[in-house]
């Protein structure tokens, strides 16, 4: 799973969001490091929809335009859980190794 797809699925994990809502949530999650352009966002959304990991939730009118909200599917939740577990395991290893490096440097 790409980093962008992981961010988008995480952004949808606490409830349905519309396109710009996802962009904002991804920017916040990444502490401003990932600023998705709309073209990139919809490339990711199209792939996730094609893989059955997200689906449309509802449409709401706003300023004369329809905002489409997206939500995670059951498969999307499973895929996100697997990816999160993998990334968490990598983080644990990285922290342990950095701890050893710091201990060697200190001792």
């Amino acid at each position: 799973m790409t980093g962008q797809a992981f961010f988008v699925l995480t952004a949808l994990a606490d409830g349905p969001r519309h396109g710009y809502g996802i962009v904002g949530e991804v920017a916040e999650l990444s502490q401003g490091r990932v600023n998705l352009k709309i073209g990139s966002l919809y490339g990711v959304l199209e792939r996730l929809a094609a893989e059955g990991l997200i689906e449309p939730d509802r449409e709401e009118a706003h300023d004369g335009r329809l905002r489409r909200y997206y939500r995670l599917t059951g498969d999307g939740q499973s895929a996100l859980a697997q990816e999160a577990a993998l990334r968490a395991a990598i983080v644990r290893v990285a922290r342990a190794r950095l701890g050893r490096l710091a201990a060697e440097a200190g001792g």
């Binding site: 519309h18 396109g19 962009v23 966002l41 959304l45 199209e46 300023d63 335009r65 329809l66 489409r68």
Partner: peptide, 19 residues
Amino acid sequence: WYREQWEQDMVAAYMDSWL
């Protein structure tokens, strides 16, 4: 075929990012 499915939503998201 892609615009038919996604254009309105992309435009809405893009305009949201400006307004």
